[in-house]
Nucleic acid binder design. Structure first.
Lengths: 235, 235
DNA sequence: TGTACATCAGTGAACGCGCGTTCACTGATGTAC
DNA sequence: TGTACATCAGTGAACGCGCGTTCACTGATGTAC
């Protein structure tokens, strides 16, 4: 086994990818609860037991999909918030762009979004492997706040003084991810992230039916994101 | 068949209730995806086909549970926001109390909360019957805003001017539910509701793991609700 | 370069599970005369 | 008040479905000498 890839290795890589592809397709069509190894195998023209050469169980396949979804969502948000164009547009605009990217990805990949931000799949416990990719979105938002703070442009987050307990937690979190940031800004960032996720979830999970018209939802999210950015001290 | 209830009617009422009880228990323990007619029947010592005398299908049972969950959640929020004590405490405090009640109910009934605000159950379409009870929470929040407005205490909602499309939608919504309210206040109320739901969902669906400590979550929600109330123009 | 052996992918059958729903039936409760 | 009939609840068996996972197997690919 040298640098040149043998037939087995190549086949293994390609078939693993084909399984993931098919699983992603079924996830998109039916949702996680309906995803089955047998259906994936069937669609691929394999016998169901053959899939076990590539994934030791259904849960492992699910985990792979979760990691993939986190990464795709994280990438989309990072691209929107991290690019040169976004940086030039100002802090608040960067934050809004991140929120809009999040929504856009969620709306085009609803079941994958549900996988990472929806009701937990019954009987499935997210393993360690998913925690890294899962932090990309909040870290991308945090980066906007850090940049603003570093440039001296970060205003006071609204909401008044933090309660003691929340202050301590926020300080601990800041120590790990953004040591230069005051706990108020850290806490406000987490809250803003949570509210973005919440807003996006409302739309993706169909709770805006009869309340916010379908064509108005993008605008709705944008407006809400602007408010969140302002409350965060971004301008 | 007169005013006095016959044995059959009484039995029917009691057994229907027993089925709902058992279904609720299984929902709480396992989640909607795992709820099965057979399991309910088994636990009740009936044969599975007997349940069909009371509910024509699994979906009808689910619908009944959804209506019940909406009502219980709505009741909890109405109680918190509508009582005399809450009214005396001021508008913002009423709003915060509503948010806290929502969270408290969700945390103690996570699977029931998931039923109404989580990922849609695959293959299940919510029927008309659920839309009425589903509006109790937003209407309770709206009532706080209306009262404040009627008393001349409602400030300007933050976030600047509404985009045209959103303004029109908000006006239409206001025409139906709160004709005296300016569209800005209506839109802000919907946004605040969405953000509350989002915050509560984050906690209930386990996305605060490693970010907000378990004991800090109530405080976190309370603080966020205060901010939402302020942004809404409540004081 | 050729041969013996080890590794691995894929097959096909099977196990055991639980599900929603239907159906013909028995026996008890209610109703009309 | 008593009797014939209709209504209804609950039974037990069955249908047909799809699932995750295991296992002994065949045949192809890779490796060591």
């Amino acid at each position: 086994m040298g640098v040149i890839e043998g037939a087995r290795e190549r086949a293994r890589r390609e078939i693993t990818a084909a399984i993931m592809d098919q699983a992603r397709r079924q996830l998109a069509a039916e949702g996680a609860a309906r995803l089955s190894l047998r259906a994936v195998a069937r669609e691929l023209g394999m016998v169901s037991s053959a899939v076990y050469r590539y994934f030791p169980s259904r849960d492992e396949l699910l985990t792979a999909l979760i990691v993939e979804a986190y990464d795709a969502l994280g990438q989309a948000v990072e691209d929107a918030a991290g690019g040169a164009a976004a940086r030039e547009a100002g802090d608040a605009a960067r934050f809004v762009a991140a929120g809009r990217a999040m929504r856009a990805w969620a709306v085009t990949h609803p079941h994958e979004y549900a996988l990472v931000h929806g009701t937990p799949v019954p009987g499935y416990a997210a393993p360690q492997a998913t925690t890294g990719p899962g932090t990309r979105v909040p870290l991308a938002l945090l980066a906007v706040v850090r940049d603003a703070h570093a440039a001296g442009r970060l205003g006071e987050p609204s909401g008044g003084p933090l309660p003691a307990r929340a202050r301590r937690d926020a300080a601990a979190l800041a120590a790990e991810f953004a040591p230069e940031l005051p706990p108020e800004a850290m806490a406000a960032t987490v809250a803003a992230w949570a509210q973005l996720v919440g807003l996006v979830g409302m739309e993706v999970f169909g709770q805006f039916t009869g309340v916010v018209a379908a064509e108005a939802r993008e605008e709705f999210l944008t407006h809400a994101a602007h408010r969140l950015a302002a409350g965060l001290g971004l301008s």
